[in-house]
């Protein structure tokens, strides 16, 4: 089947999608957007968390066909509109600064979840942060520095000084590579 939907503001179409494919599979394998991660593919770990029409969902539990005509936002689009191109969203910068990233496999899902938390609750308590992030497993950090990062992003936002400066120099990764299946 053909599925078309919007990802990070850009219209995408995928052909020859098997009905059993998840939104996660189509994002990763057909649209060239592997930022959302495939750690369990059964909705337990949160590594594939994306926004679907604004709702926080596990992309592995959404059939690709269910995304038809809808808007998806992934970690790749988190910084859109947050500052100059190539910059980081405040929550991304906070994760880097707080040391909340180790292996990083859980990071995209945590970022999308934390970003949604701060959107609806700009100054969450620690208990609020823990509750909101309880669906996102991390095996490396013990979560302390993830808490630090969310607190830091909230504090910077409250101070009105959320930095959007580019991070350390990194090579530009291909954003518009050929898409498998196209």
């Amino acid at each position: 089947m053909r599925v078309s939907f919007t990802v990070n503001g850009r219209r995408h179409e995928a052909d020859d999608v098997w009905e059993g494919e998840s939104l996660l599979f189509v994002l990763r394998e057909r649209l060239g957007l592997p930022g959302s991660k495939n750690a369990c593919e059964q909705g337990e770990c949160g590594s594939c968390t994306v926004r679907l029409d604004g709702e926080v969902v596990c992309a592995c539990l959404v059939a690709a066909g269910q995304a038809q005509g809808r808007e998806v936002r992934t970690v790749e689009g988190l910084a859109d509109g947050a500052g100059p191109p190539g910059g980081l969203a405040p929550i991304q910068q906070a994760f880097v600064d707080a040391g909340a990233v180790q292996c990083g496999f859980c990071t995209p899902g945590l970022l999308v979840t934390a970003d949604a938390l701060l959107e609806r609750q700009p100054s969450p308590s620690d208990a609020d942060i823990r509750e909101a992030l309880s669906g996102n497993l991390c095996r490396c950090t013990g979560y302390e520095k993830i808490l630090d990062a969310v607190r830091l992003a909230a504090a910077r936002s409250a101070a009105g000084a959320a930095p959007t400066a580019p991070g350390p120099e990194a090579p530009p990764a291909p954003r518009s590579e050929p898409e498998p299946g196209e």
């Binding site: 957007l33 991660k37 970690v75 980081l88 990083g104 496999f105 990071t107 995209p108």
Partner: peptide, 18 residues
């Protein structure tokens, strides 16, 4: 800070499953 930190928070870091 980690040299791979920015890549990891933007979803650009290339894991083996990617």
């Amino acid at each position: 800070s980690r040299p791979d930190g920015v890549l990891k928070v933007t979803g650009e870091f290339a894991y083996a499953s990617d």
